[in-house]
Simulated assay, not measured.
Amino acid sequence: MATTVLHKTRERGFLDGQFLIAMPSMFDANFARTVIFVCAHSEDGAMGFVINRPQRLTFPDVLLHLQILDEEEAIRLPPMARDFQIQAGGPVETGRGFVLHSDDYLSDSSIPVSDDICLTATLDIVRAISRGEGPLKATMLLGYAGWGPGQLETEISQNGWLTCPAREELIFDRALDEKYDRALELMGVSPAMLSTDAGHA
């Protein structure tokens, strides 16, 4: 389904590189007050990542689970790797990890999702981050948000989402609680202004 719309040779859809900002009318609790970065959009569906939901797991937890490090090695992780942020990327395949990152790191499996941001979902980038050799800007997301053909367009037309161009600094900002209001500010909108009659920008 959604993962099939994300591959290296695809043409970018008109919602690629956009933020989806949940409207107050959003009935799905998985997406209430969320900001989603759309990575792929086509006639086959859409895929993106929630960028403002915390994840209880830490990066050392992930490394231990993947058996990349043992507990003694995890204790000696560089501070930047130890504090590397993990987020809940969406309700689909929540046991699967993805890394959104700046384009200063590229591997054979990295996929460009915008002019400056790439997506890598293989262990090579996890190992690089654990050694302090990863990209300058990055965040790991467990799970993703996916839509079937025409589903996202329908949700937007039914006033489920506002859309606006994504901003890199907001994607990688660690202050998750502030992202929803800040995303609205990008559009010149305050939460109090939102109503069920608004459309997309």
Rank of each mutant, 00 (worst) to 15 (best):
T4F: 13
H7W: 11
K8S: 05
T9D: 15
R10S: 12
R10P: 02
R10T: 06
R10C: 00
G13Y: 09
G13P: 03
L15R: 12
D16A: 09
D16M: 05
G17P: 05
G17F: 02
L20D: 06
L20K: 09
P24Y: 10
P24M: 15
M26R: 07
D28Q: 06
N30L: 07
F31E: 02
A32W: 03
R33A: 11
T34Y: 07
T34F: 03
V35L: 03
I36V: 15
F37A: 04
F37G: 01
V38N: 05
A40Q: 05
A40S: 13
H41Q: 04
S42G: 14
E43S: 14
D44L: 08
G48T: 04
G48L: 10
G48I: 06
F49S: 04
V50I: 15
N52M: 13
R53Y: 05
R53E: 09
P54K: 06
P54W: 08
R56P: 00
R56W: 04
L57I: 10
L57Y: 08
T58D: 02
F59P: 00
F59V: 06
F59Q: 01
D61E: 13
V62W: 12
V62P: 00
L63N: 02
L63E: 04
L64G: 08
H65V: 00
H65W: 05
H65R: 14
H65K: 11
Q67L: 05
Q67D: 15
I68F: 07
L69A: 08
D70L: 12
E72S: 13
E73Q: 15
A74E: 05
I75P: 01
I75Y: 09
R76S: 11
L77K: 10
P78V: 11
P78W: 08
P79D: 10
A81T: 03
A81Y: 00
R82G: 00
R82A: 10
R82S: 08
R82C: 08
D83S: 15
F84Q: 08
F84G: 01
F84M: 15
Q85D: 11
Q85K: 13
I86V: 14
A88H: 13
G89P: 12
G90W: 03
V92R: 01
G95A: 03
R96K: 15
G97W: 06
F98A: 11
V99N: 03
L100F: 12
L100K: 06
H101Q: 09
S102P: 07
S102I: 05
D103G: 13
D104S: 02
Y105V: 01
S107F: 07
S110A: 13
I111M: 14
P112Q: 07
S114C: 10
S114M: 05
D115F: 07
D116T: 15
C118R: 12
C118M: 15
C118V: 06
C118E: 08
L119S: 06
D124N: 11
V126C: 03
